[in-house]
């Protein structure tokens, strides 16, 4: 399902290389950019609202594979909703982020899920529900159980995080990557008719596929 980098191009070993497109979705101010920043830079700082979308890449050298993540951190502001599909199109994975201290953002995450369900088949995309800002426990409006329960019924990964206090941020990204790799293996042993074809990155222009249908 991922874009496979031509095997054998990595000099160190014969580990396969994968590239995955990840999109961060959620209401404004839930902490999408803070999560991305924590994950990529391992730092937390006061960020201003995202304009449109920010793009990051992160390469992971794991035992079983080299994984390049293309992270699309979208803006939660309503005026950008009309272009959001540009950013999540062809995503391999989505983080649906809400703020545990703001119930409304949890409802919004559910709406995001409906939208994704309309556009992706379940085995096409790995979705994780992320309840951020656990450090604001005193103001919590969404219980862990609520989040967990919803994720379970919808078959989503689930994790609560805090970008501020660096709680489970790396874990949620790793959980997603492992799920992607697990599906990769599963698919290899049992090819699915729905799986998207892999793209050889050695061929120039393959990357643009991310943006074109």
């Amino acid at each position: 399902m991922a874009q496979t980098v031509t095997p054998g191009t990595s000099p160190e070993s014969s580990r396969p290389s994968y590239m995955y497109k990840m999109v961060l979705l959620g209401s404004m101010s839930v902490g999408k950019s803070s999560l991305a920043y924590r994950y990529v830079k391992n730092d937390f700082r006061e960020l201003l609202p995202t304009v449109g979308c920010s793009f990051f890449t992160q390469t992971l050298n794991l035992d079983e594979a080299t994984v390049k993540l293309e992270i699309w951190d979208t803006a939660g502001q309503e005026k950008y909703q009309s272009v959001c599909h540009l950013y999540y199109r062809d995503a391999h994975t989505a983080l649906l982020v809400y703020d545990i201290a703001n119930k409304q953002t949890f409802s919004r995450a559910k709406i995001w899920l409906e939208e994704l369900e309309k556009r992706f088949l379940p085995d096409e995309i790995v979705i994780a529900l992320v309840g951020n800002k656990t450090d604001l426990g005193a103001e919590r409006e969404v219980t862990t159980e609520e989040g967990e329960e919803f994720a379970r019924t919808k078959g989503l990964l689930f994790m609560e995080t805090s970008a501020k206090s660096n709680y489970q941020v790396n874990d949620v990204f790793m959980a997603v990557v492992h799920e992607l790799l697990r599906r990769e293996k599963e698919k290899a042993s049992n090819p699915s008719p729905y799986g998207r074809s892999t793209v050889d990155l050695g061929v120039s222009g393959a990357r643009t596929r991310c943006c074109r249908t």
Partner: peptide, 12 residues
């Protein structure tokens, strides 16, 4: 907006 400092922004 300081958000352009990080990563690459793509915005309408």
């Amino acid at each position: 907006s300081s958000s352009f400092r990080e990563g690459e922004a793509w915005t309408p």
